[in-house]
Amino acid sequence: MERFAPLLLIALAAGLAFALCLALRPLMMRYALARPNARSSHRTPTPQGGGIAVLAGAFLALGLALALIPMEASARQGLILVMAAAALLALVGAWDDIRPLSPALRLPLQVLCVGIVVFYAAPEVRLLPETLPLWAERGLALIAGVWFVNLVNFMDGIDWITLAGLVPLSGAIALAAGYGIVDPATGLLAAALLGGLIGFAPFNKPVARIFLGDVGALPLGLLGAYLLYRLAGSGALTAALILPLYHVMDSTITLFRRLGRGEKVWQAHRSHFYQQATDNGFEIVEIVAQVALLNLCLIGLATISIALPGLWAQLACLLAALMLTGLLLRRFSRKQARP
């Protein structure tokens, strides 16, 4: 039974998320419509809040797994804390969806949720114990976690783009657990997240019938960050850097460009490379397909980096990942020639 638990968990989470999307969509249509503006990629009012279904489907399935599958108390407690932090962040996102929060309030709440994960859900994780003292490593992990939460939210600007990033990531880490690279509890969380995203996917395909909303994007960023943190803590730091590289590079380069132009970086915009691609003649399905294909290549490079632990192999894999990602960003930033 335990051998097939991840597959059953994926199926259950997907079914629950799908059913919840069906049930909640009329309510979202009434109370949570995202209306298009000059910075939007959609043209018609679309309900947002699909992240509620993703999280609820994933967490209900994971809760059942926690009740039925034996595991160490520390692993069980870690998962409960991660779910609690993600639920709290979902509340912050829901509040922001309904009545936008000021950055001065939103950021401390995000730091609190990421801090729960870094300091309490994964206290045993060390990434560079021989290089950095514990306080410095924890501080960097906190900053990276808050940035990942925000970048997933920033990148959730066209249909399926978040799924193109998080489905390969969660699937890869669920598979890594099957091979003993990460612990089984992390594998269960990855499987539950994968299932929730799959259940939501039919409603978010272009043209989307439901958006994730901040209620979904923020906690999904936290869950993705936690999965990567666990992967890095298993000794696969290079793999953890490679897997999310498209989302990280697109959002980080865009952030620094906007800072350089003196823009208010917390305000909505259309400067991301994937947004430039829509203006440059790419169809949304083309953009998402190319991001997903890149992420599959990144999974391959991450796998090689785990199989070949030597320094030069690690550097070669990371360099190849950076080059592939850079090529796609460059492609998106240029006008698409049409016959």
Rank of each mutant, 00 (worst) to 15 (best):
V291S: 00
L294K: 12
S251N: 13
I242H: 12
H269A: 13
A236T: 02
H269P: 10
A232T: 10
V265I: 12
L228T: 06
G233L: 11
S251G: 14
E283N: 07
R258L: 14
Q276N: 08
L296T: 05
D250P: 15
R258G: 13
E263F: 03
G262P: 05
E283V: 02
G260C: 13
S251Q: 11
Q275L: 15
A225V: 02
A268Q: 10
T238P: 01
R257Y: 06
V285W: 04
R257D: 00
L293T: 11
L298C: 11
S234W: 07
M249H: 02
R270H: 11
H269I: 10
Q267K: 15
L245F: 12
E283D: 13
A268T: 05
W266I: 03
A302E: 02
I287P: 00
I304R: 11
L293C: 10
F282T: 01
C297D: 00
H247D: 05
A268F: 03
A225Y: 15
A289R: 15
C297P: 01
G235V: 03
Q290V: 01
I253S: 09
L243V: 09
I284C: 00
D279R: 15
L227K: 12
A289M: 11
Q267R: 14
Y226N: 04
L245N: 07
D250E: 15
S234H: 06
H247W: 03
A232R: 09
